[in-house]
């Protein structure tokens, strides 16, 4: 159980730095609003970042995979679209990849 509770000082430091960075993004908009005007153009650019970063992670990940991973990825997408349930989608993807690897 010691492992469960272990707190590596370096890890804690990085986590707290992440927390500070995130807090600054959360309060930054309200704080800046009275001082600067954010253009619609910049706003449009910022709003695509989360989706774009997710895709940037997925691309090389799937490029280095094979048909089993592609099929399981497709299955995950399908279940997510149909049900909107993340846990169900994950289970489908993981069960799918095991099954597809077994037959592939």
């Amino acid at each position: 159980m010691a492992e469960v509770l272990s707190l590596d000082p370096r890890v804690v430091a990085v986590i707290l730095a992440m927390a500070v960075v995130t807090f600054l993004t959360k309060v930054g908009g309200l704080w800046l609003l009275s001082r600067f005007e954010v253009s619609d153009r910049l706003e449009a650019g910022i709003s695509v970042l989360p989706g774009a970063i997710v895709i940037a992670i997925l691309g090389p990940e799937f490029a280095s995979g094979g048909p089993a991973e592609w099929a399981a990825g497709g299955l995950t997408l399908l279940v997510m679209w149909r049900t909107g349930n993340i846990l169900l989608a994950l289970v489908a993807g993981v069960v799918g990849v095991v099954a597809f690897r077994a037959v592939g």
């Binding site: 989360p50 989706g51 895709i55 997925l58 399981a72 995950t76 997408l77 997510m80 989608a89 993807g93």
Partner: peptide, 25 residues
């Protein structure tokens, strides 16, 4: 062995499905 190595890819696929905003994406 249990396909857990695929969880991360599956999480991101699910996130992508939620972040998709139609043609503008």
């Amino acid at each position: 062995r249990y396909g857990i190595d695929f969880v991360l890819a599956a999480v991101f696929v699910a996130l992508a499905a939620e972040l998709w905003e139609g043609r503008s994406s």
